[in-house]
Simulated scan of single mutants.
Amino acid sequence: MPSSTPRRSYDSERRQQAAERNRAAVLTACRELLFRDGYQATTVRAVAERAGVSPETVYKAFGGKPGLVKALWDVTLAGDDDPVPMGERPQLRAVWETRDAHAKLGLYAAFVRGVHERLAALFTLLTQAGPDVGRVLALSEEERMTGVTAFVGHLADTGALPADTDTARLADSYWALTGPHLFIQLTTGRGWHAGAYEDWLTGMLASARSSAGGSAEGTGVPGT
């Protein structure tokens, strides 16, 4: 009797592809409606109708409007919907693999710039949406703090910090310097182009690193 496994595998692949198409359509519809109508007027039903799916499909995939907005935030931050952790993406892998301490800071500043260029418009919209999205923004800041702390830990592990560095305080400094508010204030508010922001941020990260403890001389890391 012929095995039915290939058929089941084929059907499973088709369902997976359909789910991915639906997810992409829903996220696109959510973005379009948010920027056209605003957060309050964007409903799950409206998103579902625009995406050509049922509201139940949206609820099943995202758990409601806050989950949908958080998913849109994550996709915008990463630049795609691939299931790859941020720390394993090419830009950050280049940071981890670079030995020169100052070059690490420059690459990290470039990464931060790219994130904010993608997120700035959505961040501004959500900050004006009221308390309904407060948890989404708070969670994004918690996740950003986790990422910044990992970066500071990497600098410490590779000998790129003074021996007596208060890493918790340095992480707080880096978190403040790399925040979306500051990017928007300097680019939108003060008219800086993104390249100027990136250069400034590199210098500020270097300054904070140098003043985080004792002298950085003698760490053995190129560029210190």
Rank of each mutant, 00 (worst) to 15 (best):
S12P: 01
E20G: 03
T187P: 01
P83K: 04
R135S: 14
W175E: 08
S4L: 15
Q185F: 14
A171L: 07
T5C: 10
Q128R: 12
P131D: 14
E49C: 00
G218N: 10
H102C: 03
D157N: 11
L33G: 00
T5L: 15
R169F: 14
D81P: 00
A120K: 09
G63N: 12
V136C: 08
P222C: 12
R93H: 05
G223W: 08
H181R: 14
A171C: 11
G114I: 01
Y39C: 02
A120T: 03
E143C: 01
L155G: 03
S211R: 15
T219D: 02
T28Y: 00
G220T: 11
T146Q: 13
A71L: 02
R209N: 08
L125V: 07
P55E: 05
T127Y: 08
D100K: 13
Y39E: 07
N22I: 00
V44R: 05
G106W: 01
G195A: 04
R7Y: 15
R190K: 09
M1Y: 13
M86N: 05
L139K: 14
H102A: 05
A196N: 08
R21T: 00
T224A: 13
L170I: 14
E32D: 10
L77P: 00
R99P: 03
V58G: 01
S173C: 15
V221P: 03
F111I: 02
A41Q: 12
P83Y: 05
G64M: 03
W96I: 01
T158S: 14
P6V: 04
